[in-house]
């Protein structure tokens, strides 16, 4: 079984005071630490568990700058067999559509049974790349998978739908599945594990290798442009409500209503 997992390196902003840089288009990155996107980590684990059950090969791929290779190495340490780094100066500034173009170009013609993504990324949070690639490669897809089994040329997937329900689907392989967190318990990658794969040469493919037109990708090819980033109006710590109990509760109700809580 040939499984490909598309992963992404994202910034962990949980403990950081977010600042928007001078261009207004990016965050000040000084304090960021980076790691594999949480959803993608579950996707890698799902791929590895399928490989352990059925045999085959798992390949991790990412689109990004040199530093993004880190997540591929992590995937190798987890047990992926191969990694492919899609990197080229003209990829920079790609929107999700551009990323999907690059991934599709890299995957086209590959002996692929299953293509996994994390459902969304912690930074952009749009949840569209997997669907784009499924559309571009014309593969059937299920999103938000919470369990994934393969039997012969059919994958059985349950996935989250509205109202706390789950639906079970059958997919003809090859197919795309985007994975929801909690589908499994991703294995730990020790420092030693990372060091053991530090010597592996990870192949890099650029725009020429993929047969892409440079104008299709990168900032110039982006169909959706970022115009500005701004911070939502919000104080640092809690707005304390004061007054009589009645007044407090009325104020609270207004705030709840404004924030979609009623």
């Amino acid at each position: 079984m040939d499984i490909y997992v598309c992963i992404k390196r994202v910034a962990d902003t949980s403990e950081v005071d977010i600042e928007i840089d001078r261009t207004g288009l990016a965050l000040t990155e000084d304090d960021f630490s980076y790691d594999i996107n949480e959803w993608d980590n579950f996707a890698v684990e799902a791929a590895l568990q399928l490989k352990e059950e059925h045999g085959g090969k798992v390949t991790a791929l990412t689109v990004g700058i040199e530093d993004d290779e880190e997540v591929l190495r992590r995937a190798l340490a987890m047990g992926c067999d191969e990694a492919l780094h899609l990197s080229d100066p003209c990829f920079e500034g790609s929107d999700a559509w551009g990323i999907a173009q690059i991934l599709s170009a890299a995957l086209k013609g590959k002996p692929l049974d299953l293509l996994l993504f994390g459902t969304v990324s912690a930074d952009e949070g749009a949840g569209q790349t997997g669907g784009f690639v499924a559309g571009l490669l014309d593969l059937p897809m299920v999103s938000l998978a919470t369990s994934l089994k393969v039997n012969g040329s059919i994958a059985t997937v349950s996935h989250e739908v509205e109202g706390g329900l789950e639906r079970v689907r059958e997919l003809d392989l090859p197919a795309v599945v985007t994975v929801q967190t909690g589908i499994n318990e991703p294995r730990y990658v020790s420092i030693r594990g990372i060091r053991k794969v530090s010597g592996i040469e990870i192949p890099v493919s650029g725009v020429g290798d993929l047969g892409l037109d440079p104008n299709q990708v990168g900032a110039s090819g982006a169909r959706v442009k970022l115009e500005e980033l701004f911070l939502p109006p919000q104080g640092q710590s809690a707005q304390m409500l004061e007054g009589s109990d009645d007044e407090i509760i009325d104020k609270l109700l207004d705030l709840l209503q404004e924030n979609g809580g009623l």
């Binding site: 999700a96 559509w97 999907a100 459902t119 969304v120 949070g125 749009a126 949840g127 569209q128 790349t129 997997g130 669907g131 784009f132 690639v133 499924a134 559309g135 571009l136 897809m141 299920v142 999103s143 938000l144 996935h159 989250e160 739908v161 509205e162 985007t178 169909r223 959706v224």
Partner: peptide, 24 residues
């Protein structure tokens, strides 16, 4: 809507109809 069903359909349809997509 950008719901679970939306996540399931919208990107696929946007890709197949070749439309730029603004999500969520």
């Amino acid at each position: 809507h950008h719901t679970n069903n939306g996540l399931d359909l919208a990107p696929l349809l946007a890709a197949k109809s070749d439309r730029p997509m603004l999500a969520d």
